[in-house]
Every structure is written in C-alpha cells, then in structure tokens.
Design a protein around this nucleic acid. Structure first.
Lengths: 333, 333
DNA sequence: TGCGGTTTTTACAACGTTTACCGATTCTGG
DNA sequence: CCAGAATCGGTAAACGTTGTAAAAACCGCA
C-alpha cells in the first residue's frame, strides 16, 4: 500500500502542491492548512518517495564514503563517525568498499552511482593524488588522509608529520636510541609522510637514521606488523623501540614480541597511530597517536555539504584534525 | 555534463527505446544495433540515472543492512561481507546504524527510507521478535541472529545452542569444572540462547550449574567483559574457565586476567564467540566459535533477493550457518 | 462597495527512465 | 516473388515529486 502525495492531498482536501509545500517548509501557509495537512500525513503514515524527489530536485541527500575496507577497525570507526555526523544533518551515507583496487576507486570517482550521490568523502589508497585532482567529477569530493590532490580538492587530515614527530620524540624521551619504523612507504601516501616526521624527530635528537630500521612491509594489517617485527628482531642489532604507522601494525608487532618472550615496554617500546579500541584494551595497552575522530567526521561532512550547497567557487580548504598522543603501557605510561 | 538516454540515442542514431532495450537486455535486438548502442554508451560514458529508473521500475537494487553499530568488529566484518555478497549480484548495500535504539530500529522497519530500499537484512537488538513479526512491512525482511519473529520472517543464524554446547564441552574436556559464562541475558536474545547450550553441556557432563558463575553484564563490549571478569575473580571460589558469549567480552576478560597476573589458559581458560580478527592476533590467541561469515552473508543476500524477486508466498526459510570451534592458545590449543 | 496589494493555493509541466502498444522491417517457405 | 510470421524499433504515457507562473482568496482603506 503506497501512499502518495495525492492521497494525502485528497484526505486533507487541498491540492498536491500544498502538501508538498507543507513538507518543504514553504513559508506562506496558514497554520490551519498546515495542521490539516500534517494530520493527513500522520494518519496515512506518508513518507515521500526518495526517488521521485531526487529525480525532480537533482539532490538526493545521499553522500558516499569511499574507504578501502570496512572491516578494518579504523575505517569501521570512521564509517560510524561519518554516518553519525551525516545523520545529524539529515543526510545518509553510502559506504563504498574499494578494497584498495584502482578499478573500484576509479568507478567511485566517475561512476558516482548513477547520479544518486550528491558528493563523496574519499579515502584513497591506490589512486594517485594527481589522478584524483585530474578527474573532472560532476560532484564535489572531500579527500581524507595524507594524499594531496595537487591542491585542487578540499581535504581533512591529521598533521601526520607533526604527529609522527611527537610519537618519535616521545620514544626518544624515554631514552630509546634504536627506534624502528614500520609501515614506511614510497610515494606521497601515509607511509612516506609519517616517515618524514619520524626522521625529523631523530635528526632533532641527533640520532642518525638507520635504513635497516625502516620497514615498508606489504600492507597495514596485523600480519604485516607481525612480519616486520620478526625481521627487526632478526637484525644483528635489534631496535629498542618501534613506531608503527598504524595501530594494526603495532598490534601485530606486539604479538611477535610476545611470542619472542620480549617484554614491552622494557625490552622494546611500541607506539601506534589511530587509537582504535583494540589498542586501548590490549595487554599491554598501546601508546598511540589519537586523531579526534568526531572532529574529523564532523568537519568532513560539513565541508562536503557546503560544496554541495553550491559554494563551488570558494577557495579550497585544507583542514587539520587535532591529535593527541595517548601514552599507555606499551611505552610505560 | 549529464548524459541522458536521449543523448546516447542521438549518438547511436536510434530511438531512446532501443537504447533502453540494450541496457535491459531485451532479447530481440540485432547484434549490430546492440554494438552501435554499446559504443555510444562507452563514448559518452553514460550511466543510467538511478532515481529515474527506480521511480519507474519500483525497484532500486538497493538493500539496507540494519545493525546496532558499525564500529563493533563483528558487525564491521558482517557489513563488509554483506556488501561484497551484494555487489557480486549487482546490488548496493546501505548500512543503517540503529545504535540499539528501539526508535531507530522502528524507523528502519516502517520508514524503509522512503521506498528507496528493496528490502532489509536486519540484526535486531532491542526490538522484540514479536514486534518485528507484527509490523506489516511493505518490503521483505531477512532476520539475522537468534531472535525469531514468531516464525514469520526468513532468518539466517548460527545454531547457537549447539555452538555454545560445543564450546562449553571443549572446556570440560580440558578438565575444567568451574566454568563461568559471561553475557547471559534475559529474554529470547543471544544471551539466553547461548546460555541454554552452556547449561546443556554442563548437565551432560554431570556438573551442577552455579548461578554465581553466570554473569549478565550490561553490554557486549570489552569493558563489559572486563568488568564481569573482575566480579568473577572476586568470588570466594573463582572459575577455572570462562565462556564469553562474544569475542569482545572475551578480550575484555583476558585483559582483566592479565592485570590480575593470572595465566591463560593455565589458571583460567577462555573461549569466545564470533572469531573476529582481534582474537586471532591477541596474545594469547582466542579460542572461539567461528561462524562461516561468507556463507552467512551470501545466503542472507540470496534469500532476500529471492523474496524481492517476488517469491513472497513461498514458505518461510530458516537457515543455519555452519560453525566451527577454533581452538587456540586461550585454551591451550 | 470596490480597489490595489498581499498572501495563500492551484494547475501544469518538467526530471530521466521503462513499459504497453503498435507500426515497420526483415526473414521464411511455398 | 509474395503472404505471413517473426523480429525490431518508435511513440506516448506513466512513475511521484517540485518549480514556475498564474489564479484565487483575503486584507485594509478609501
């Protein structure tokens, strides 16, 4: 039993357009008419047809969030936060798992889900910053993370260089000198930006950086962290501290350390990045860089909605998410 | 620059209808025409307008997945799996976070997102089974989890009684006798069904069940597991094994045990339920009941699509997800 | 009462797609 | 080479909503 606008109109004894006006808060309506219509809507339990509205208005109040994988704790928490932030503003989030595949990312970019989506919040992995900036998308995009798009797209990100500097400096302040880094990567992505902060901190403390202590690994999951840690332990001179570029890597590293019978933080101190819940409850609990996720979600959504609202020509904005270093047991906190 | 069906038609030199026919795989089209149209579609990078199509067809190829919270690992993995399963079939999943609130669940049920959604996969928390069955929804629903809807809705779930029986029996086979349960709950939900299997196993082994060892707690997160474990340790006669009704509870319990300086599994053996990734990498790694998530996702989606396709009158189906007990370090595996 | 001006309501035409209904074209066999 | 069948393509009318523009109702004031 589908209820249409015309059903409501018939019931309220007014025209279809008047009902539409009531729904869309058109100002000039007598409170009497409004009440009548509201009552009819209640009685019939009417809900506007999203498709029809979207077709007519050219707006759907849907946005997409494109992330590599929803099952990864950081992205799961991000998705939850963005959904909440969007819901507050009456809009719905559609989550797109790109699985880090270039093809899927491209599809997100130009496919745009058949014009249903009003805009995208995009957390790219494979697609190069340049390519993203290049793509002439019909709809606004807000970028998340370190990758820049040649300065052409709005972006919301942690100051990863500063955050990594903070994390590394914390390890140095504990008296550690052989500090490894797990997750360094080539290109302009997360891995290379965080390495920059890491090296900067070492340099500031007068510690020469040892390439043997910088491990790239193949990914950003626990297994990659575990494998990298095994490599580090096999070195003639193993590290006394490790800065992992995300929490999953750190949790993997902790597992390897536990297996090796090493004590954390006494033998090796460990710092992560992201502040996912697993790290907070892990034993030992994980010292980590904590971006303000609510802030991030809220501003990313607000930024996108502002563009959608038509501020297409406004200057590009680049927002920095506040972060703190949560010192916990894995560094003796 | 919006491309419409008519643009494609003009380019290919055919009528709008023909293009539509090609897109919808209408059988009687010369391969020549088809090729021409395909080419035009390629060249113009045409994508059908989802709103218009959905308005006309009454179908959107969107389904919703309603879960309590996306950030919880089990649900994050579930969301990922369902999304994948749906994408394989060319349909898109919209994730709804109900946050366990009755209001949100109700909204999902009758709001139905303004008729955009073709159906729902629903993992209810607060809404009572009866209420769900009652609701005369316009669109099909597939239920996930223990809660039954008075036998009126299709459902996909693990045989929780059997699985809990298996888990408890495993602990008994290790020689444990004071086996606690964390997460027991009233009503007809997860907590009570799993308790049933737990008690059954105790009974089968001739162990009297001790109410002091059954903790309800307030939720299903790490903190709840940690708190419950603290209660158990405060007992005059603490348990030598704990069966937690999900992995998060178990991870919380492990944290408390570590803080108390107790050894797992020597002092206390721990079993969880869900097989989330955190448990696999935890130290000690977590013995747990592992439902076949791919199977679950695939069948839930298939079931829903079958209903959507019009098999509304077919008999209700109740599918049992295969599960295995993964024996790991937390029980000496 | 009648008039300008203002407020409130209405009719009609889109938005881009698919479907029902036909008319046109091609193919087959005699 | 033609009748009839099979195949293919075109026209027009929906789907439910909102924007435009115009009509109707109302107001106060002369």
């Amino acid at each position: 039993m589908v209820t249409r606008l015309s059903d409501v109109a018939a019931r309220a004894g007014v025209s279809v357009k008047t009902v539409s006006n009531v729904i869309n808060d058109y100002p000039h309506i007598t409170s009497q008419t409004r009440a009548k219509v509201q009552a009819a809507i209640e009685e019939l339990d009417y809900r506007p047809n999203v498709s029809a509205r979207s077709l007519r208005k050219g707006r759907s109040d849907f946005i997409a969030l494109a992330i590599p994988e929803m099952a990864s704790p950081y992205f799961a928490e991000l998705g939850a936060a963005i959904s909440r932030a969007a819901k507050k503003r009456g809009i719905t989030v559609l989550i797109d798992q790109t699985e880090g595949e270039a093809a899927a990312e491209k599809l997100v970019l130009d496919g745009m889900r058949g014009q249903l989506i009003d805009g995208i919040i995009f957390s790219p992995i494979t697609t190069s910053p340049a390519r993203i900036g290049e793509t002439e998308t019909a709809k606004p995009i807000v970028l998340l993370g370190e990758r820049d798009a040649g300065g052409r797209l709005d972006r919301v990100a942690v100051d990863s260089v500063q955050a990594s500097y903070d994390a590394t400096t914390h390890l140095i302040s504990l008296g550690r000198r052989r500090i490894a880094a797990i997750g360094v990567g080539g290109g302009a992505g997360t891995g290379s930006v965080r390495r920059k902060g890491y090296r900067k901190a070492l340099k500031a403390a007068g510690i020469a950086h040892d390439p043997a202590l910088e491990l790239a690994g193949t990914g950003y999951h626990r297994e990659d962290g575990a494998a990298s840690m095994r490599e580090l332990l096999a070195l003639p001179e193993p590290p006394d501290a490790v800065f992992c570029f995300n929490d999953l890597l750190a949790l993997g590293a902790l597992r390897t350390l536990a297996d090796a019978g090493l004590s954390v933080p006494d033998d090796v101190a460990v710092v992560g990045f992201d502040d996912i819940e697993d790290g907070r409850y892990h034993s030992p609990s994980l010292t980590t860089v904590a971006p303000d996720m609510e802030w991030l979600a809220d501003h990313a959504v607000a930024l996108l909605l502002d563009r959608i609202a038509g501020n297409g020509e406004a200057a590009r904005r680049d927002l920095t998410v506040p972060h703190t270093l949560k010192i916990r047991e894995s560094t003796g906190g």
